[in-house]
Nucleic acid binder design. Structure first.
Length: 465
RNA sequence: GCUCCCAUCGUCUAGAGGCCCAGGACACAGCCCUCUCAAGGCUGGUACGAGGGUUCGAAUCCCUCUGGGAGCGCCA
């Protein structure tokens, strides 16, 4: 049996972190087993579905590299097929028309609630023979009254539901359009899905879906209900923290593999290993290693994970992501080699590409002001002669290379009797404007001789002032 | 209210009866390295929700409780 998984978001909002992780698990499982990953857009709710949301899903999946083998399929384009199955159910006596009005239903539920019962449809239209004039009926699925349904969940183990708990759910609205639980069943069947991997908020829908699958005469797929993701405070994900679009993480400077690694480690693990390449995760992932309990987002660890991936990425690849981050700061450059060099110099001191860009502005833009504290401490009368000496020697330096620059700075420090820091730090302030930068030799090499000399001159002048 | 799910450091987790007076990671503190910031190394503190069983022995199995979550729509 070839594995076929699907990710089936509804385009009613953004693609958030929880959806991304579900998609990742589906994708990983399919890839691991050489199966197919199918993308399906569940847009039957025409009121709330938007083309923007569809695009955000597609774009997010593409950015993350979670490529699908089939689809995207849109439920709104499969209406004929749903209608066909509804007619079949009706014909076979597996579904029936219900003429109950909204008021009648409300009243029934109010009574049940008052009696402390679970609100559910009581099947009063099951026996009805004649249509009610002037009422467009809904179609309800006829659920078995007796027995039980057991969901053999891959992560939870067997879960048993008493059939009495399940009522006759509506599969077609009075306007004829099919509803969610029904569409899922038809789709999963038609698309030959073997493993339904989804959030565990769907556990309670599963027995109903299994009953419909049985009515269709087919064996249900394997189900794997993965735990939900909570906000950093342990409460439900809200807009305040994680429930932002996946694309927001891209804009915030996350690497796809960084985000995916963090999300993958939420609810899944492989011994003590924390950092996984996508290839490793694909090789190691197994759905029954997934935890049962919900897990809370931890932004610090997410940032740390991303940093680990930045450190492992090639400078060239980083440059590609750094470019738009620089552009966001108003820095347009064509010099890819320089951007890559900056990325290499910065890659172990940035948790996100955005942070890297922010800390690298001085590589691309003139230093016109100094950080006040840094200048006060380093651009002093005492530092002036050291900077002058450095400046003169640099002007005369043969090869403008980090190793040579390092020797030069070291020589000045040795001759002056001051520590290396006494020399390096003023240079750092001079060329970067602040007190933090990559190692000074590497920094100067990237900056080049002209820029360096010019910034040193300016700093020497500032020392006198 | 009813049904279902879940429960190890603050957080993510390892742990499938003895290897655990519980291991790793993030965060935090201290130290080392060091031209800054990082990265890296070392050290430290903090957890098996509670109560009952089963067993020679339980974080691991069973029961009850407590706490959290989800579902109960002509939403998905």
């Amino acid at each position: 049996m070839t594995v076929r998984t699907r990710f089936a978001p509804s385009p009613t909002g953004m693609l958030h972190i929880g959806g991304v992780r579900t998609a990742l698990f589906c994708w990983l499982y399919a890839r691991r087993h050489g199966g197919a990953f199918i993308l399906r857009i569940e847009d039957t709710d025409r009121e709330r579905s938007t083309p923007e949301a569809v695009n955000a899903i597609l774009e997010g999946m593409q950015w993350l590299g979670l490529d699908h083998d089939e689809g995207p399929f849109y439920q709104t384009q499969r209406m004929d097929r749903y209608g066909e199955v509804i007619q079949q159910f009706l014909r076979e006596g597996k579904a029936y028309h219900c003429y109950c009005s909204k008021e009648e239903l409300d009243e029934m539920r109010a009574g049940q609630t008052a009696r402390k019962e679970k609100p559910r449809y009581d099947g009063r239209c099951r026996q009805r023979k004649d249509p009610v004039p002037g009422v467009n009926p809904v179609v309800r699925f006829l659920n078995p009254d007796a027995g039980s349904v057991v969901v053999n969940d891959v992560v939870h183990g067997p879960i048993t539901f008493d059939s009495g708990e399940l009522d006759d759910l509506i599969i077609a609205r009075s306007d004829g359009t099919p509803t969610y639980n029904f569409c899922v069943v038809v789709d999963d069947y038609d698309m030959k899905i073997t493993h339904v991997i989804r959030g565990d908020d769907h556990i309670n829908n599963t027995p109903r879906q299994i009953n419909m699958l049985r009515a269709l005469g087919v064996a249900p797929p394997l189900y794997a209900h993965v735990p939900m993701i909570l906000g950093p405070d342990g409460a439900k994900l809200s807009k305040r923290h994680g429930a932002v679009s996946a694309l927001q993480y891209r804009d915030d400077g996350f690497l796809p593999e960084g985000l995916l690694n963090y999300l993958g480690r939420l609810g899944w693990s492989h011994g003590d290993q924390e950092i996984f390449s996508l290839e490793e995760m694909t090789r190691l992932f197994d759905i029954d290693d997934v935890n049962k309990g919900a897990s809370a987002l931890n932004i610090d660890k997410m940032l740390w994970t991303n940093q680990q991936h930045i450190m492992r990425a090639t400078p060239e690849r980083l440059a590609q992501y750094l470019l738009p981050q620089l552009a966001a700061l108003g820095i347009e450059t064509e010099d890819l080699a320089k951007v890559a060099a900056v990325a290499r110099a910065q890659q172990e001191r940035a948790r996100t590409l955005k942070e890297m860009a922010q800390n690298s502005v001085f590589f691309f833009r003139d230093v016109t002001t100094y950080d006040e504290k840094a200048a006060k401490k380093n651009l002093t009368a005492e530092a002036a002669p050291l900077l002058q000496s450095v400046r003169d020697r640099m002007a005369a330096l043969g090869d403008w290379q980090a190793t040579k620059l390092h020797e030069l700075v070291q020589a000045v420090a040795a001759e002056s009797g001051a520590g290396l820091g006494k020399v390096a730090q003023p240079i750092r302030v001079a060329v970067s404007g602040g007190s933090v930068s990559p190692p000074i030799d590497v920094t100067l090499e990237i900056l080049g001789r002209d820029t360096t000399l010019q910034r040193l001159d300016r700093a020497i002048a500032a020392c006198a002032a």
